[in-house]
Amino acid sequence: MSLEEQIYIRKSCRKYLDDEIDMNIIHDFMKSAKPLDDDLKYHYEIFEKDEVKVRNRWSAPYYLALFCDKKEISKVNVGFVFQQLSLFLQSHGIGSCWDGLDSVKGKKPVILIAFGKSNEMTREISSFKRKSLDKISDFEDERLRPAQLAPSAINLQPWYFRHADEVFDVYQVRQNVLKRKIVKKWNPIDVGIALAHMYVANEEKFEFYIKSDFDKLDGYIYIGSIKI
């Protein structure tokens, strides 16, 4: 199955097998993963379970620790790049789950991705619990279905698309004080994950750029614009 097809069956995986994985599959894919901007720097390291402080009720045999600077757009880029990897891994029988709770001693990644071989990493599209298309955009648009199905921290889906001529202006929802305290650091990554789905579904046409003159919307933070 193609990476685009994985979008419609993907499930955040929390049950793993202990099978070993040849990490070259990751290193090779990352050579061709597309960033939002070539100037945005990031890197990753791979750890095994015994090297990770696990706070979740579940664990995986392997973890990707993802690193970048503290700029919001850099975190968006991390979500964008590594959701491509997540879909690729799934296409090879390797499940994954974005993991903001666990940590690696002596390291300060922006987030982890748990991963490993699994028999429980897909689902029917009817089981997705997501906002309707008209709740993530100024009006319902089937072209946004890939973004609608993207995973996010506590399933908040903090992205909003506004039609602007031939492009979509992309915004991040400003959370209330309580939610902001819990998920603020992960929301830019979530938006990047949604953008990754839009890229994978529109690989030949996808463009991302940042406008100097964008419309300010109450309750939203402008992230950038995409053309598909």
Rank of each mutant, 00 (worst) to 15 (best):
K108A: 08
V81M: 00
N56T: 00
W98Q: 05
L40H: 00
V104L: 15
E4A: 14
K131D: 05
P158R: 12
N56I: 01
A33D: 11
L195M: 05
G79Q: 04
P158Y: 05
E20Y: 04
I193K: 10
K129G: 07
F139N: 09
I193G: 01
S118V: 15
N56K: 02
F214E: 09
F80I: 01
A33I: 11
Q90S: 07
D134G: 15
S2P: 08
V54N: 11
I94F: 10
I46N: 08
I26Y: 13
K135P: 13
V81I: 15
K71P: 13
D99K: 00
Y16L: 05
Y220R: 13
L178A: 14
D215F: 14
Y160H: 05
I26S: 11
Y171P: 09
S212W: 04
D19G: 08
Q175I: 09
L133S: 08
S74N: 08
S132N: 15
Q148H: 04
M30I: 15
F80C: 06
S91G: 02
W58F: 11
M1W: 11
Y160I: 00
A196L: 15
L101P: 00
K108C: 08
I46T: 05
D213W: 10
A194R: 09
N119Y: 10
L133W: 05
Q175F: 14
G116W: 04
R10G: 07
N56G: 10
H163M: 10
G79D: 11
Y16H: 09
K15T: 12
D39C: 09
I228H: 05
Y63V: 07
F82K: 02
K184P: 07
S152E: 04
Y8V: 09
G106S: 12
V183Q: 02
R14H: 13
D38K: 12
I221P: 01
S32Y: 03
Y62T: 03
F80P: 00
E124K: 14
Y160T: 00
E207T: 06
C68D: 02
L40W: 07
F67H: 04
L17E: 07
L17A: 09
A147M: 13
R143D: 15
D141M: 03
L3H: 11
L178T: 15
N202T: 00
P35T: 01
I193A: 02
S2A: 14
I154P: 00
Q90D: 13
N187S: 11
I221H: 02
P146D: 06
D19I: 04
L40T: 08
F208C: 07
Y62H: 11
D169E: 12
R130N: 04
K105T: 01
L85K: 05
D19L: 13
H27Y: 15
K41H: 10
S74W: 08
G106M: 12
A153L: 01
S132M: 12
I21D: 05
F115Y: 03
L89N: 05
V170A: 01
L149E: 09
Q175G: 07
K216H: 08
I154L: 02
V81Q: 03
S12T: 11
